[in-house]
């Protein structure tokens, strides 16, 4: 009987560079939106100033700390898998998912309050306000919504990594999937680091 030899090619370095290239394109996407925000903020300075006061700085700050904490647990899971601590890795990844969900729940309540006050794009109340208010809330919902979508994608990725770790497809010597997911999660953190002061603090 003829023996078959299966060769699998693995290039962790190339996979990491690919992830970084993806991150760079994402950075350009958000940079474009930040540019739009800056231009309209300059144009409708007064409207943006008043509209920003509608946002809750306390909820924004709590959400920032939660997201930074999730970045820490994600980073710890990366070190843990390199040390071969499978159970601890799974715990840290699960904690990251929980923190991500808490962030989204907070965001949901924040959005709901705005909807209850009629401060959402297309609402009659918002149309009645100044052009600055309309632009501010339009950008607020679009940019924080896009960020939330990225966060949800991150949560799905982390879930996939947890399954891979449990089934030993990701382990001490093969952890590129976890590393790239960790990079993606930190990108979500990075975007929020700029979103938070732009919407909540600069008014």
């Amino acid at each position: 009987m003829e023996d078959t030899l299966t060769l699998t090619h693995r290039d962790d370095s190339a996979s990491r560079i690919g992830m970084w290239l993806f991150i760079f394109t994402e950075l350009f996407l958000f940079a474009g939106l930040f540019l739009v925000f800056t231009v309209y903020r300059t144009k409708y300075h007064e409207g943006f100033h008043l509209a920003a006061r509608e946002l809750n700085v306390t909820i924004g700050t709590i959400n920032s700390i939660i997201l930074l904490l999730s970045g820490m647990t994600m980073g710890i899971s990366y070190v843990a898998i390199k040390k071969g601590k499978v159970k601890f890795t799974v715990w840290m990844l699960t904690l990251t998912i929980l923190l991500g969900i808490i962030f989204l729940v907070n965001k949901y309540f924040e959005w709901r309050i705005k909807f209850e006050h009629g401060l959402y794009p297309g609402s009659l109340e918002l149309i009645g306000l100044s052009h600055g208010d309309v632009m501010f809330f339009g950008l607020y919902f679009f940019m924080t919504g896009l960020h939330a979508l990225h966060l949800i994608a991150g949560l799905i990725l982390i879930s996939i990594v947890i399954v891979a770790v449990i089934h030993k497809r990701v382990h001490q010597t093969k952890y590129a999937l976890l590393e790239n997911t960790s990079l993606y999660w930190h990108l979500v953190d990075l975007v929020w680091i700029f979103l938070f002061p732009l919407f909540y603090l600069i008014n």
Binding site: T61, L68, G75
Partner: peptide
């Protein structure tokens, strides 16, 4: 895991300063 602990503390403190 001190690297991640320290960066978390630094990032949180900077957020609070802002």
């Amino acid at each position: 895991y001190k690297l991640y602990l320290f960066t978390f503390i630094a990032l949180s403190l900077l957020t609070l300063v802002s």
